[in-house]
């Protein structure tokens, strides 16, 4: 199962509810993704949840790890779709 670490920006002036979006993502991807602490050693993707397009989160401790940033709700939904489609493809390959 894909291991995703959630890293937030600092939330100085967010344009949407970042925590609510992450809750929605976790709910929609339950059973498909394992959410772990971002500093975990075996994390596959860092999902950076930014409150605006400035996207100023400090990512210096995640060098070499795949980063996926979202800066609004729509991008969050897109991330959900990507993960679901990824799983569909993996399952299809497995069936072949």
């Amino acid at each position: 199962m894909l291991r995703v670490g959630v890293k937030y920006c600092g939330g100085c002036n967010p344009e949407y509810d970042r925590v609510a979006l992450v809750e929605q993502i976790k709910e929609r991807l339950e059973g498909k993704v394992s959410f772990v602490l971002p500093e975990s050693e075996d994390v596959d993707i860092i999902l950076v949840v930014c409150g605006c397009k400035t996207a100023c989160a400090d990512l210096s401790s995640f060098r070499g790890i795949k980063i996926r940033a979202v800066t609004n709700r729509e991008e969050g939904k897109k991330f959900i779709r990507e993960i679901i489609e990824r799983e569909v493809q993996i399952n299809a390959k497995a069936e072949k």
């Binding site: 937030y8 925590v19 100023c56």
Partner: peptide, 8 residues
């Protein structure tokens, strides 16, 4: 709180 730690 993880949603603020990047600033705090």
């Amino acid at each position: 709180r993880s949603e603020y730690e990047d600033i705090m």
